[in-house]
Amino acid sequence: MRPNHGGESARRQNGEALRFDLKDSPVRELNRALHERGAEGRSIRVANPGGKHNVAVGARFRGEVFIDGHVGYYCAGMNQNAAIVVNGNAGPGLAENMMSGQVRVKGDASQYGGATAHGGLLVIEGNAAARCGISMKGADIVVGGSIGHLSAFMAQSGRLVVCGDAGDALGDSIYEARIYLRGKAAGLGADCIEKPMEASHREELAYLLDQAELGGMKAGDFRRFGSARQLYHFQIDHLGAY
């Protein structure tokens, strides 16, 4: 299912958008509305986030949340179902532990974006800082720009797509997540290796690029990285790699 965002779906909403101005009202009021199913069928528009923390955390309803500005720590954490758009930058811990739905950031995201996320799609149109997708557990993350060091550290499952470059120690101690990288990696982490791009990989990558709506990206321009599976079981010869 393709999550909705932008103007396309506004026509499909029942009723007027619910509006929150975080200059005047506390973040908790917004989040309470997102936790309850009562808002379903309406879209939510958030003005003046001003870098506040915990904006749109724990959303459970099926609908759109449009946040007009920059957000602080932990935006869209634990998201289920909702399609959240940040028209700005996001601070550390974006979409941490997301379960489902879609989170899209129009600008850049700070460190550990998508950490431990179980499901859903996180799109960062700009750059992501260090530790993007650390310990991801099934989510898909697509980054339009570059990512910082130690990204996909111990990533267990899901896919991390990077249209730019990756920082040092990419995929360190990675399990079964798959990394698709268009640019260069400053360095690969322990047990992370380049793997061949099979037809099935090109197919899933093309699907993710289409979902992310970044435009102009060809699956054939990416390389795949994943686990060499040498660190799964302790071997004394590998002591130095842990």
Binding site: G50, G51, K52, H70, G72, G91, G107, H149
Partner: peptide, 22 residues
């Protein structure tokens, strides 16, 4: 340390904003 401090400044909406590299 955080953007919310910068958000208080006149003109912050149109500022170039970035995270310093390690």
């Amino acid at each position: 340390s955080e953007y919310r401090a910068i958000a208080q400044l006149p003109g912050s909406k149109h500022a170039a904003i970035w995270e310093p590299q390690p």
